[in-house]
Simulated assay, not measured.
Amino acid sequence: MINAPAPAGRAVYEQLTAGVQLPLPPIPRFMLEVIAESILAAWLNIPQDQIGIADEAGLNAMMETQLNQLADQDEQFQMLVAAAVRGKETINFDGTWLEKRPDLSLILTNGVRARDFPLTIECKLIHKATKKGVSLYCNKGMKRFIDGDYGWARQESLMLAYVRDGSSIKTHLEPYLGRHFGKAHDIFCTTTLPVPTGSSAAQAISKHRRRFRYIDRAAQDDPGPIAIEHIWLDARGSN
Rank of each mutant, 00 (worst) to 15 (best):
D74T: 07
Y137M: 00
A153H: 06
K100V: 14
H185Q: 11
E75L: 09
R164I: 01
D186G: 03
C123L: 02
T130H: 05
F145S: 02
G148L: 02
R86A: 14
H185T: 11
A84C: 14
D149I: 02
I107D: 00
I169N: 01
S157P: 06
I121C: 00
I187A: 06
Q73H: 03
C189Y: 09
L158D: 00
A161F: 03
V163E: 01
S157K: 01
G141N: 05
H127F: 15
R101E: 13
E122Q: 08
G182E: 12
V134H: 10
R86T: 09
N110I: 10
V112L: 11
C189A: 08
D94M: 10
I146C: 00
G133K: 05
F117G: 06
K132N: 12
L104H: 07
K131W: 01
I126Y: 01
R179L: 12
S157T: 09
R164F: 04
N92G: 10
F77Q: 08
Y150M: 03
N139G: 09
E89N: 06
G141L: 08
E89L: 12
D116E: 12
L125G: 01
N139T: 14
L158H: 00
S135C: 05
L173K: 02
E99H: 10
D94H: 05
A161I: 04
N110K: 10
G182R: 13
G148C: 08
H180R: 13
D74H: 07
S105Y: 12
D94S: 05
L177E: 11
R144K: 14
L80R: 06
S167V: 04
S167R: 09
S157C: 14
A83C: 07
D186N: 08
T191E: 12
R101A: 10
G141P: 12
I126E: 00
G178W: 11
L98M: 13
H127L: 11
L177N: 06
L80V: 10
A184R: 11
L177M: 06
L98T: 09
K132G: 05
S168I: 13
G182A: 14
D147H: 05
D74Q: 09
K100N: 15
T171S: 12
M79T: 09
L136F: 07
G87E: 14
D72H: 11
F77M: 07
Q76G: 04
Q155N: 07
K128E: 14
Y150I: 00
G166F: 06
G111P: 04
G151H: 04
L125V: 05
L80H: 03
S168H: 07
A161N: 02
E75H: 04
K131Y: 03
V81L: 09
A83S: 13
A84M: 13
E89A: 09
L158S: 01
I91H: 01
